[in-house]
Simulated assay, not measured.
Amino acid sequence: MKPAMLAILLASSTLFACDKEDQDLAPDKVPAEVKASLVKTFTNAINFEWEKKEANYEVDFDMNTVEYSALFTASGEMLMHKYDITATELPEEVKTVITQHYTDYRIDDAEVVDKAGTRYYQVDLKKDNMEKRVVLAADGQEQAQISYWD
């Protein structure tokens, strides 16, 4: 087998092996309760992309030119949602902790995550070829018990 074909075959098998529990869904495969909850909560949402995440439903969408994601149970209960923000929109306490604890790292991406009414900030940090992902509370405290939501 030619090296190029082998590389393509290996890359495609790796791609399909990842996230076996995550499945892209057509909108007609999403329960009506989930779609109704989404529209009720995010009235200006557009451009929906649905995935099945284990027993839950995740949707990526745009609202007012901002990228959002939300995670719902099959009955339509929203478990959490997130949206993109700029580094300048992070609370001062969060920026201070990043500056003090992640010297020489730059903020590559920042998001607000709302989980059960509590706001967290998840931040992608980059330095040379290194990347770190951290979740922080509004006061800048790292939240090791909260998983980074991809």
Score class of each variant (00 low, 15 high):
142 E>K: 15
34 V>D: 02
141 Q>L: 11
47 N>A: 10
2 K>A: 11
2 K>M: 08
117 G>H: 04
135 V>H: 00
150 D>V: 07
140 G>H: 13
136 L>N: 00
5 M>G: 05
31 P>F: 02
105 Y>K: 08
25 L>D: 01
121 Y>S: 00
37 S>L: 04
78 M>S: 09
84 D>E: 15
102 Y>K: 06
3 P>K: 14
45 A>R: 01
88 T>H: 14
1 M>Q: 09
55 A>E: 04
99 T>A: 15
106 R>D: 09
49 E>F: 08
11 A>F: 14
16 F>V: 12
55 A>V: 02
138 A>G: 08
118 T>G: 03
15 L>D: 04
3 P>A: 11
45 A>Y: 04
133 R>I: 01
112 V>K: 01
137 A>R: 02
38 L>W: 06
84 D>W: 04
102 Y>H: 14
43 T>D: 11
122 Q>K: 02
81 H>M: 05
18 C>S: 10
32 A>I: 06
1 M>V: 11
106 R>S: 13
118 T>W: 07
91 P>D: 01
7 A>T: 08
51 E>S: 10
9 L>Q: 12
33 E>N: 12
66 V>G: 05
73 T>N: 01
9 L>P: 01
67 E>L: 10
144 A>I: 02
22 D>K: 15
36 A>I: 07
41 T>Q: 14
135 V>C: 00
3 P>S: 13
8 I>S: 09
77 E>Y: 09
47 N>R: 09
67 E>M: 09
31 P>R: 02
123 V>S: 02
126 K>R: 12
44 N>P: 09
90 L>E: 05
10 L>M: 13
85 I>G: 00
118 T>S: 08
80 M>P: 00
21 E>P: 06
30 V>R: 04
71 L>D: 03
132 K>S: 00
38 L>M: 12
